[in-house]
Simulated scan of single mutants.
Amino acid sequence: MTPVLDLVGIFVFALSGALQGVRKRLDVVGIAVLAFFTAVGGGIVRDLFIGVQPAALRDTAYLLVPVVATVIAFFWHPQVERAMPAVLVFDAAGLGLFCAVGTAKALHYGLAPMHAVFLGVCTAVGGGVIRDVLSGEKPTLLYDRELYAVPAMLGSTVMVALHALDVRGFVATLSSAVLAFAFRILAVRFRWRAPLAKGVGKAR
């Protein structure tokens, strides 16, 4: 992933976290905290599992981008809410990019394929889980109403498969990211849902 794409993904996730803070009537500090952890929480979790210093603690841009998202949400949240369809598209793109890059980084550090898939999914959805926990919501990862974790898992699995076929670099990243992105968009468009346990009714 190029730095620009990385920062775009971080910005979209940070905006998602900041908007959650606005909806929960948090002050500016709370909004900034949610923006930061939504944007980079998954990457921090991945790097801690791998045993390397988190990239978010080495590059100032990883701190500045969530601050920008916080300012935008704080002053212009009504306008951002009206643009949510476009934000959801960018969010899906960030999901695809982060699952692919997270998986690639795990493979680079010698993790087994299944563990690499796990960390790829963590990279993509970990920030959202932290956001939901901090804001008192049921984590999307535990109740995949719009198939958010499933596209990330698909993209990570494809990344591992391409790695095994010796297809790597930009081609592998783009292919995995586009597949996860397309799956996520289709899930939103057609309201696909993960199945509940047999005999359990839908939540009201």
Results as ranks from 00 to 15, higher is better:
T2W: 13
P3F: 04
V4W: 03
G9H: 00
F11W: 00
F13H: 01
F13Q: 00
A14D: 01
L15N: 00
S16N: 04
G17P: 00
G17R: 00
Q20E: 15
Q20H: 14
Q20W: 11
R25C: 13
I31D: 03
I31T: 06
A32W: 07
V33S: 09
T38I: 02
G41A: 03
G42K: 01
I44N: 14
L48T: 09
F49N: 10
F49M: 11
I50W: 10
V52G: 02
Q53V: 13
Q53G: 15
Q53H: 13
Q53E: 14
P54T: 07
P54M: 08
L57D: 07
D59E: 12
T60M: 15
A61I: 12
Y62I: 08
Y62L: 09
V67W: 03
V67H: 04
V67N: 04
V67A: 06
V68K: 01
V68T: 03
I72C: 00
A73M: 00
W76M: 00
H77G: 00
V80S: 01
R82E: 09
R82S: 06
R82Q: 09
A83W: 10
M84S: 13
A86K: 10
V87T: 12
L88A: 14
F90M: 12
D91S: 03
D91G: 02
L95T: 04
G96C: 05
G96A: 04
L97V: 02
A100R: 02
A100Y: 05
A104I: 10
A106S: 04
L107R: 03
L111T: 04
A112S: 11
P113I: 07
H115K: 15
A116G: 04
A116T: 06
F118K: 06
V121D: 03
C122H: 12
A124N: 01
G126Q: 06
G128P: 09
V129S: 07
I130T: 06
R131V: 04
V133G: 09
L134H: 09
L134G: 09
L134A: 08
R145I: 08
L147N: 13
Y148D: 07
A149I: 07
P151N: 06
P151I: 05
A152Y: 05
A152S: 07
M153R: 08
M153C: 05
T157N: 08
M159G: 01
V160P: 02
H163K: 03
A164H: 15
L165R: 12
V167M: 08
G169Q: 03
F170H: 15
V171D: 15
T173P: 08
T173K: 11
T173N: 13
S175M: 05
S176I: 05
A177C: 08
V178F: 11
F181M: 11
R184T: 03
L186M: 14
A187P: 07
A187R: 06
V188F: 13
L196W: 11
G199T: 12
G199S: 10
V200I: 09
V200Q: 05
K202I: 14
A203H: 12
R204L: 12
